[in-house]
């Protein structure tokens, strides 16, 4: 069974970068997929990778990460640009969505400008049971 945990931005808004990352990783280490409202800062995303590496052991294999950004690269319209700039000023990092899943559960998150696909791994315990059942 997959467990998704929604984290509203206000839950991390006033935390330091290190505490934000540890909070999110603690949830992921409970085998839950985090859906964070908004996004981390660029430097925090790199720190997230670094701290994930520090935490890797035989049980925790790392994370799958995807950030959905509402900014459109083909935004050439001046009015749209102004609107986007205003939204950025008002909402800051609250815009978009960040998905962080444990690598033991999420095998891949495929992202392209139009869609996002999250692939999960089959539960190894379940696989073992299926194999056992299959034996004559």
């Amino acid at each position: 069974m997959l467990t998704l945990r929604f984290v509203p931005y206000h839950e991390i808004e006033y935390l330091t970068s290190a505490r934000r990352i540890h909070k999110l990783l603690d949830i992921v280490k409970e085998n839950k997929i985090v859906l964070l409202e908004g996004r981390l800062k660029k430097e925090e995303e790199t720190d997230l990778i670094e701290i994930t590496m520090e935490k890797i052991d035989e049980k925790f294999k790392g994370i799958e990460l995807a950030v959905i950004n509402p900014d459109r690269k083909d935004n050439n319209n001046v009015l749209r640009k102004m609107k986007s700039g205003f939204m950025n000023m008002m909402l800051g990092d609250r815009q978009g969505l960040t998905i962080i899943g444990p690598a033991t559960i999420v095998s891949e998150i495929k992202k392209n400008p139009d869609k996002i696909e999250l692939y999960t791994k089959e539960d190894p315990e379940k696989q073992k049971k299926v194999k056992k059942k299959g034996k004559p």
């Binding site: 995303e45 790199t46 950030v67």
Partner: peptide
Amino acid sequence: QDPYSQVNITIIGNLAA
């Protein structure tokens, strides 16, 4: 390979910053 992986985007975004 798929260039839209978050690792690529994170590294490049970080360098831009």
